[in-house]
């Protein structure tokens, strides 16, 4: 099982000391004595009051540790679209790593595919026991860890003031606009222009090895007015503008 996401390709900066050019590192010091604290003397503490901490030792923490069971035991299968997206926490790719497992893996995968279901199981990850979902994809299985019930905030208190029904005349226009602006998913949609310009900046520095000010920085568009007077007009305008654009193109 390997995570599907990673930050390793992200441009990372370190903090340096201007004077010496050395890396700046962090160190823990005792807040009262000011003396450095060795790693082995660091412990987790829960604030009971001001400057009063209950220390949890490793032994204490072991008492509540959950056993890590090495088996992904699928408890049930549920319709593939029944797990709300908002619960999806982190994707992992699941593959068999010995030939014995290949066939059993493929059987589960293909049967889930054929039935339009995903498997639900539990797995201890990072000390916490998470519900996980196994979803067949391509030749493998994507294993999603799910957020806990109490981690997802109840939507009702955010959405309660929103009206139920849209103006029936507006919806067809929106749909028309949707059609015009329809596209297909592509990873190009998640490019990182800032990373690109940072890499360029680094490249320039590398080449010249003397600092130069960048004039980079995107154009700033004025924020649109919030109170669009007539949505119908605006929608029509959008649809027309797009059509014109197409003819011209």
């Amino acid at each position: 099982m390997t995570p599907a996401t990673s930050e390793s390709e992200k441009v990372r900066f370190y903090t340096l000391n201007k004077e010496t050019g050395n890396r700046v590192v962090s160190q823990y010091i005792d807040s009262v004595t000011g003396k450095p604290v060795k790693d082995e003397n660091e412990a987790k503490g829960y604030a009971r009051g001001e400057n009063d901490y209950v220390i949890l030792t490793d032994d204490d923490l072991d008492r509540v540790a959950l056993d890590t069971v090495k088996t992904i035991d699928i408890e049930k299968f549920v319709p593939a679209d029944s797990i709300e997206w908002v619960y999806l926490e982190k994707p992992h790719y699941l593959m068999p790593d010995d030939p014995v497992g290949n066939e059993a893996f493929a059987v589960i995968r293909d049967a889930m595919k054929a039935d339009g279901v995903v498997g639900v199981s539990k797995l201890v990850m990072g000390r916490r026991e998470r519900a996980v979902v196994l979803e067949p994809r391509d030749d493998g299985i994507v294993l999603w860890s799910l957020r806990f019930g109490d981690e997802v905030r109840p939507e009702a208190s955010y959405f309660e003031d929103i009206e139920d029904e849209a103006d029936p005349d507006l919806v067809p226009l929106v749909q028309k606009l949707i059609k015009q602006k329809s596209s297909h998913w592509s990873p190009n949609m998640v490019s990182d222009p800032i990373q690109t310009s940072l890499l360029k900046l680094i490249d320039e520095k590398k080449k010249e090895l003397k600092p130069r000010k960048t004039a980079k920085g995107g154009k700033t568009e004025a924020a649109p007015k919030s109170n669009v007077v007539n949505i119908m007009d605006a929608l029509r305008k959008s649809v027309e503008a797009d059509l014109k654009g197409r003819k011209a193109g």
């Binding site: 010496t20 700046v24 590192v25 962090s26 160190q27 660091e42 901490y53």
Partner: peptide, 18 residues
């Protein structure tokens, strides 16, 4: 949780050093 110095029971602060 906060990180505590076991020997003194005080909280630890993070400082930046060369």
């Amino acid at each position: 949780f906060n990180t505590i110095n076991k020997t003194t029971g005080n909280r630890v602060n993070r400082v930046f050093i060369d």
